[in-house]
Design a protein around this nucleic acid. Structure first.
Lengths: 301, 301
DNA sequence: ACAGCCTGTTCGGAATTTCGTACAATGGCC
DNA sequence: GGCCATTGTACGAAATTCCGAACAGGCTGT
């Protein structure tokens, strides 16, 4: 068997997928220069240019595209094969890569993870926090947590964490002292509010329900934040009314630095779901996590 | 993407297939110790024993068997993908691994190889000589040369070299002086003959044809050889009658150190064929060789 | 039963790969 | 149009892997 330049091919696959040496290096915990070296070796050996690279842009040559296309299933197969040995261990081992919204990362996952990690001591949890992202699987995550039950093909959703959550309104006593309290969401248009912007750039409108009819309001904002912590801090400082996950406000409400606003208009909705692709190979850590969630749900109900 | 221990996996595949560290090392041009190291690393990382090894025997654990089973198609796919970039070169590159009988290696291949290698300067020819072997493809060869048109499924045979060859008899003048010459094959039973043993241990009987009827004779032997060169030398030394490919005897007959015996009983048969599997991925060097043979055959006819 | 050969492993030195830093080049942004 | 952040690469140092020889152990043939 002619020895395959496997490390070089792996490096090529990483760079080709990331379309960047440095990004690929970060993603895999190696240095950019080692990838650069590996690619030079590979191209010298094949005597074929695989990547067209200016100092600013990496693109595939036709040969590179063809190679990557054939290489990926092979590497995926090997990854799956490697994971397969996990079934011969008493306890599964490896990394579980999740992509979850901020709230879940802060208030849902820690409590679940504590029990899960204790149950499976050889599994490492790798959590990325991202509110906007949808193609969770494509970017190398094993599974994602989302709220909407968006029904992509082959995607399976199972409940995780609390089955109902709610958005509640709140404001600092100092703010209420100055501006009063709204009785109805439409009053918000006369107030100063603290809004949230997703990393996509979209500013989240507030939605309410009246007699079964849903309506949204985009109130005037003095503060638009990107992290919920900042927004809560701004609310506590009296910069406006905040309307977000109850979990984010619980501590401030308890301490009295924030007080409820529009309490009758609290929006309840169903809790988050864990999504994963049923057709892709399921790594042992993911399988363990799903099994764990299912037994927890069964016990809970 | 969790970084895959690809070199270690490749080492494991090599050792697992060869069922031996040293054999695998030789096969791939590496050292046994590096394979030993790689396997230790892999098993430590997975915390699963993959190979049961006494100092005398290597066998797969169940985990190892499962891993190998899933690993092989992945590696094959990658090898094919790598070969695929050859189509982006002006001239194909790589190694062509052939398994051919001794006669072909000595008298047929050199002349063909000269033209082939000149035509494709980036191809390396790797020739193993083996008379008995049948499962040519399974052991990592791209193709094999054989005489019998054994029709395994998906195997394709194309002619290579001379379309007829023959077995001729000969003996040294000194032998004939002492024992006379046989007129009919059955007379061989009163003579001393030089026989050939395949590496499998089987001794080849001599076969003749009389009025369309084929019959075989296993004459008494003073000498049984494993290499044709030795057998010819023995014949020249007067130790008996030899009956083998005319090519092996041509030089001695020309020089008169051997003279023909049983000339009317010369056995002609059709020349050798190149066999390859049509269903497996065809590496570029093999494709080039087949193409080359076909055009040579077309031109020759 | 036993000797001898051949196996997989160990160990220190050599070769290769990897890393961090520096540098030239390029494309987005104002 | 020019600046500057950021990209891919070059290069010497450091780490890792690889190699060859020596070693311990078991299987084969007598």
């Amino acid at each position: 068997m002619a020895d395959l330049p496997l490390t070089e091919l792996d490096a090529f696959a990483a760079v080709a997928q990331a379309r960047s040496f440095r990004a690929a290096a970060k993603l895999r915990g190696a240095s950019a220069s080692s990838l650069s070296d590996a690619l030079r070796r590979l191209e010298e050996r094949l005597e074929v240019r695989l990547l067209n690279r200016t100092t600013r842009n990496v693109s595939l040559t036709e040969a590179g595209a063809r190679l990557l296309e054939r290489l990926r299933p092979g590497l995926a197969e090997i990854e799956a094969a490697l994971d397969g040995v996990n079934s011969f261990r008493d306890t599964p081992m490896g990394r579980l890569r999740l992509n979850v919204p901020g709230v879940v990362a802060r208030f849902v996952l820690p409590e679940i993870a504590a029990r899960f990690l204790a149950r499976y001591p050889d599994i490492t949890l790798d959590v990325a926090t991202n509110d906007a992202f949808v193609d969770v699987i494509g970017e190398g995550f094993d599974a994602g947590v989302r709220y909407e039950e968006s029904l992509q093909s082959d995607m399976i959703a199972i409940p995780i964490g609390p089955r109902t959550q709610s958005y509640v309104g709140a404001a600092a006593p100092s703010y209420i002292e100055r501006f009063g309290v709204p009785d109805h969401p439409r009053d918000l248009l006369q107030h100063q509010c603290i809004l949230h912007r997703f990393s996509s750039g979209r500013v989240l409108p507030w939605s309410f329900e009246e007699e079964g009819r849903e309506f949204t309001i985009l109130p005037p904002a003095r503060v638009i934040g990107e992290t919920s912590d900042l927004e809560v801090a701004m609310a506590v400082a009296g910069h406006g009314i905040i309307f977000t996950f109850s979990e984010f406000l619980a501590e401030a409400l308890k301490q009295g630095t924030l007080v409820p606003v529009l309490a009758p208009w609290t929006q309840s909705f169903s809790g988050p779901f864990l999504y994963y692709n049923s057709r892709r190979h399921m790594p042992a850590p993911l399988k363990a996590f799903i099994e764990f969630l299912k037994t927890e749900n069964r016990r809970g109900s």
